[in-house]
Computed example of a mutant assay.
Amino acid sequence: MTWLMWLLVLAVLIGLATLWSPIMVKADRLPPLRSYWWLILMAVIWTGDALAGENRPGLERTTKGILAAAIWLNFAIVAWRRRGRSREVEPAD
């Protein structure tokens, strides 16, 4: 395998690692959504590069697409889990 293929494998592993955290951490220990602003910026840039990356190699576009999809999915999981936690009814005293 060439180093470019290893880069793609590494991107997939990093993407899976970013998804592991919001799934395995308890919902009350997740950081607030406003702390993810830099990840959203990276995801927007990488999504644009993956979709319309002119004169870029296909493997680079694929790698950025995988990482951007993992970040978007990570953000969606965190938002969903935090929303579910906020809708839980507090017990009455």
Rank of each mutant, 00 (worst) to 15 (best):
M1I: 06
W3G: 01
L4Q: 10
L4T: 12
L7W: 07
L7E: 12
L10K: 08
A11F: 08
I14T: 09
G15L: 02
G15W: 06
G15N: 00
L16H: 05
L19Q: 04
P22L: 05
P22R: 09
I23L: 10
M24P: 01
M24A: 08
V25N: 08
K26P: 09
D28K: 06
D28Q: 10
R29D: 05
L30V: 01
L33D: 10
L33V: 11
Y36E: 06
Y36I: 03
W38V: 13
L39A: 04
I40Y: 14
I40K: 13
L41Y: 08
V44C: 14
V44L: 10
I45G: 15
I45S: 15
T47R: 06
G48Y: 09
D49M: 11
D49K: 10
A50P: 03
A52M: 01
A52C: 07
G53A: 04
G53F: 00
E54D: 15
N55D: 09
L59A: 14
E60G: 09
R61I: 05
T63M: 15
K64V: 07
K64P: 09
G65I: 10
G65T: 05
I66Y: 05
A68L: 06
A69M: 08
A69D: 02
A69G: 02
A70R: 04
L73H: 07
A76T: 06
W80Y: 09
G84I: 01
G84H: 03
G84V: 00
R85I: 00
E88D: 01
A92Q: 14
